[in-house]
Amino acid sequence: MGKNKGHCTWGAGILAHRGVCTPEELSKKVNVEMVDQEFERRVAVAERAVRRNIRVPLNQSQFDALCSLTYNTGPTGASGTYGYINANDLAGAADNISRMIKVTVKEKGKKKLVIAPGLIKRREEESAPFRVKQARAAK
């Protein structure tokens, strides 16, 4: 997002908190082991959320895609997609995931939604397992 924009992250895009990093946070040293441990912890949290919220069978690709989405948006952000999946509306889930490409930014003291180019490809990849299954079911 640029200097003094977006949210404070570290390592592999691990969200420390909403809002920009303080100078103290920016000067904190982190190592690969710290990043790996925190990443693994947060992936496990996302996996538990998917298991807790999904009530229909998923294949491995669908589970992985939902874990990726949940890791990125949190369970609350992914809840709409969970609803589509639990209703066996996989096309709806895929479309919902694909629409999740905007982020809130602050410009001149006002918040606005903008398309995050990096999310377009990510959401395409996360929605694909739900589109593939739907296409196979139609044959």
Rank of each mutant, 00 (worst) to 15 (best):
77 G>T: 00
105 V>L: 01
67 C>N: 11
78 A>F: 00
65 A>Y: 11
42 R>N: 12
88 N>W: 01
121 K>N: 10
94 A>P: 04
29 K>N: 04
31 N>K: 03
53 N>Q: 13
46 A>Q: 09
96 N>L: 02
36 D>I: 13
56 V>A: 11
99 R>Q: 13
91 A>D: 08
39 F>G: 00
123 R>K: 03
78 A>T: 03
83 G>N: 09
35 V>Y: 07
84 Y>M: 02
75 P>R: 08
103 V>N: 03
66 L>V: 09
97 I>W: 04
104 T>E: 10
91 A>F: 03
104 T>Y: 02
67 C>A: 13
127 S>D: 07
104 T>G: 04
115 I>A: 01
67 C>V: 15
57 P>V: 13
103 V>W: 03
43 V>Q: 10
55 R>A: 13
119 L>S: 03
119 L>H: 04
38 E>F: 07
93 A>Y: 07
30 V>H: 14
109 G>N: 11
129 P>C: 07
72 N>C: 08
102 K>G: 03
80 G>V: 00
36 D>W: 04
112 K>E: 09
90 L>M: 11
121 K>M: 04
29 K>P: 00
99 R>L: 06
108 K>F: 07
111 K>T: 05
116 A>D: 15
32 V>H: 08
118 G>R: 03
59 N>G: 13
43 V>E: 11
125 E>S: 11
121 K>T: 08
124 E>P: 00
55 R>H: 15
114 V>W: 07
116 A>W: 12
31 N>R: 01
108 K>G: 12
47 E>G: 01
114 V>A: 05
28 K>W: 08
50 V>H: 07
85 I>K: 02
71 Y>I: 01
119 L>A: 05
55 R>N: 15
57 P>W: 11
51 R>L: 13
81 T>V: 15
127 S>H: 04
95 D>W: 08
74 G>R: 06
49 A>D: 14
99 R>A: 09
87 A>Y: 00
